[in-house]
């Protein structure tokens, strides 16, 4: 009885796997067709969509923007995350409340946060008002094609910084105390301790953050859709947004799916390479 029944425990996992794999398979199939939402005739056209996508300037442009967006977000998040995690790892009065407050952005739905930021980033919004005390000129946060990408990356950082901080904080708290004590005994200053002990020990957690946040940022849609919709001009038209427009707004489903597959492939390869190069050959996902 005990032996016979054990497959039941695997069943949910299989079902979930099937529910992921089936749509994925259908997506792969349609990416090789001329599927347009409004034309019922679906024909197999081989790699045509993939070739079109790779040859189109739009695809590479959107990819470039997506990579910029991701890199900007990640750089700020990592630096600020390590700093904040360090502060939060100290013990002092009121730390409980501060920790709670720091994590609130994560509890607000990203779309709502983005709408609030859109209002704050308006030319006469709160942000420019505050900056005016520093004598700064009015910044066109979301309405200049030169700055908008940076602004949406900032919103991305604001929303997901708590996540980064959380991982790094739990990393910091799990570190063994011995190396630190030894370093102090040896007379290392705090800068040396940070760069020669904290950072190397924290590496697995930093890599975790890089992996998660790269994948997430590459897939960003909600923040941009609820602020700039890809504009001004097409300065924030990241790949996810381009794919959404192509597939659902312009009805070119087959083509859009081929772009999704290319994006998926890139993210997959990145995570494999990142994982292996950081953790060595023994580790694998």
């Amino acid at each position: 009885m005990y032996r016979k029944g054990k497959w039941i425990f695997v069943l949910p996992a299989f079902m979930i796997l099937a529910m992921i794999l089936y749509p994925f398979g259908v997506g792969v199939y349609y990416s090789f067709t001329n599927y347009r939402l409004i034309f019922p005739v679906i024909r197999f056209i081989g790699f045509r969509n993939y070739i079109d996508a790779i040859l189109s300037q739009d695809f590479w442009y959107s990819l470039k923007i997506t990579v910029f967006f991701t890199a900007m977000s990640l750089a700020i998040e990592l630096m600020a995350g390590i700093g904040i995690a360090h502060l939060l790892s100290r013990k002092f009065k009121g730390i409980g409340i501060i920790r709670l407050l720091v994590f609130t952005p994560m509890m607000i739905p990203p779309v709502i946060s983005s709408m609030i930021w859109k209002t704050m980033m308006a030319p006469d919004g709160v942000l420019n008002y505050l900056l005016s005390f520093l004598g700064a000129p009015k910044i066109q946060w979301l309405s200049s094609s030169d700055i908008a990408l940076f602004s949406v990356a900032l919103i991305n950082v604001w929303i997901y910084l708590p996540f980064t901080t959380l991982i790094l904080l739990s990393g910091l708290e799990s570190l063994p105390q011995e190396p630190f004590e030894a370093a102090k005994v040896d007379g290392a200053n705090s800068m040396q301790i940070f760069s020669y002990i904290t950072l190397p020990l924290l590496k697995p957690f930093i890599i975790l953050v890089i992996l998660f946040r790269t994948i997430d940022s590459m897939k960003t849609f909600d923040i941009i859709f609820s602020t700039t919709k890809g504009g001004p001009i097409d300065s924030t038209r990241v790949l996810q947004l381009a794919i959404y427009e192509e597939g659902l707004k312009w009805n070119n489903m087959g083509y859009a799916l081929s772009e999704i597959m290319l994006l998926w492939l890139m993210i997959y390869l990145f995570s494999q390479v990142a994982f292996k190069s950081f953790f060595g050959k023994g580790a694998s996902s």
């Binding site: 409004i38 200049s144 504009g231 312009w250």
Partner: peptide
């Protein structure tokens, strides 16, 4: 025609380019 959304999206991009002096 059936491509109005794609077309108008491209059109508004052009207006943005003019607006920004590009």
């Amino acid at each position: 025609q059936t491509e109005l959304i794609a077309m108008w999206t491209r059109w508004i991009e052009a207006l943005h380019e003019i607006y920004e002096g590009k």
